[in-house]
């Protein structure tokens, strides 16, 4: 058995996503002695990204540089990654459970006729067996799952397995592999940016989310101010999106994004079960709502019953003071 675990890197706007570093840590959890080989596909700056993966613990990087890999397509990346897998013959593959990870990994697993465990939030080794824990039924339950045959292949949910500390003294080889990519049937013609600039909602350490209680698009302004002082992202309940207070790209819940930040501040959100499905595994939950009976208080660690338009600006000020010191 080879002692290599492949980590498929993912970048956005030329920067590696944090979940790539978490995937390196996940590979080390499977086997601290394995050689962690990073894979980076794209058309430019691959060496900088490779270096970054090494600083976060990868032992060696294979880059695949090709014009056809400028934007992600399952066809292009599929060919590139499969070529690297064939070369390296790893016994494990880890990637982030992101839009790209969800799209790419089933294709690879299907091609290789192997199992795949999606959306793991924990990995541990128990009696020689690698056990993956993952949420099911929208986080209302969890399952422990193992791969019974072949490759240990999994995607991990962002923000759950901590990355190793960045260490510039780490070093490793970066090799460029050339892969012939056939013509692509699927072409990305354009990308319309709708997700807000700045902190990525699914990877944010702090999320400030608004619901119907926020009352208008304007009502979200104080939430943005609070998110800014906390270095966090703004999210919303389905109710707020349906009412057109904000874009659906911010929606958190059963339909929408699933987030597990360190701190989740629910503002004017009643806490319907479909919303809880998207955030109930957050580490610390704060609820701000004027209705003391709101369901959100049942999952919150701390609650304030009051008018959000009073409470949120006060909270922003308090945190500013704290950060000022």
């Amino acid at each position: 058995m080879s002692e290599k675990i492949l980590v498929i890197g993912e970048s956005r706007d030329g920067v590696l996503r944090n979940v790539t570093f978490e995937a390196i840590a996940a590979a080390k959890k499977i086997n601290a002695d394995a050689e962690v080989v990073g894979v980076i596909c794209g058309s430019e700056n691959l060496n900088d990204l490779a270096q970054e993966m090494i600083y976060y613990g990868a032992d060696r990087i294979v880059t695949v540089k090709n014009e056809k890999l400028t934007s992600y397509t399952s066809e292009g990346y599929g060919q590139a990654v499969l070529a690297v897998i064939e070369d390296e013959n790893p016994y494990g593959i880890i990637m982030g459970h992101t839009a790209v990870g969800k799209d790419l990994t089933p294709k690879i697993a299907s091609k290789l006729e192997v199992g795949l465990i999606s959306d793991a939030v924990d990995i541990h080794v128990d009696g020689g067996q690698t056990v993956f824990t993952r949420p099911i039924y929208s986080g209302k339950a969890f399952e422990k799952k193992v791969i019974t045959d072949g490759l240990l292949f999994a995607t991990i949910r962002p923000n759950n397995i901590p990355a190793l500390d960045r260490d510039e003294s780490r070093s490793g080889n970066v090799e460029e592999k050339s892969v012939e990519i056939s013509d692509l049937r699927t072409v990305i013609k354009a990308v319309l940016r709708k997700a807000s600039e700045g902190v990525d909602l699914s990877e944010a350490k702090v999320v400030v989310a608004g619901g119907r209680g926020v009352k208008s698009a304007d009502g979200f302004k104080p939430l943005y101010e609070l998110a800014e002082v906390l270095g966090g992202a703004v999210g919303a309940s389905r109710g707020a999106c349906d009412a057109d207070y904000c874009d659906y790209s911010l929606q958190i819940g059963q339909t929408g994004k699933v987030v597990t930040p360190d701190l989740y501040i629910a503002v004017g959100i009643s806490g319907a079960i479909q919303h809880l499905a998207g955030m109930s595994n957050s580490k610390v939950i704060v609820a701000i709502n004027k209705d003391p009976e709101a369901n959100i208080f049942n999952v919150a660690d701390y609650g304030i019953v009051g008018d959000l338009f009073e409470v949120v600006p006060m909270l922003t000020e308090e945190i500013k003071k704290l950060k000022g010191n």
Partner: peptide, 15 residues
């Protein structure tokens, strides 16, 4: 023959 197997299912700890 499935390639994966569920060995346990549990509820999250009650908050």
């Amino acid at each position: 023959e499935p390639k994966t197997k569920t060995i346990d299912i549990f509820l999250p700890p009650q908050k």
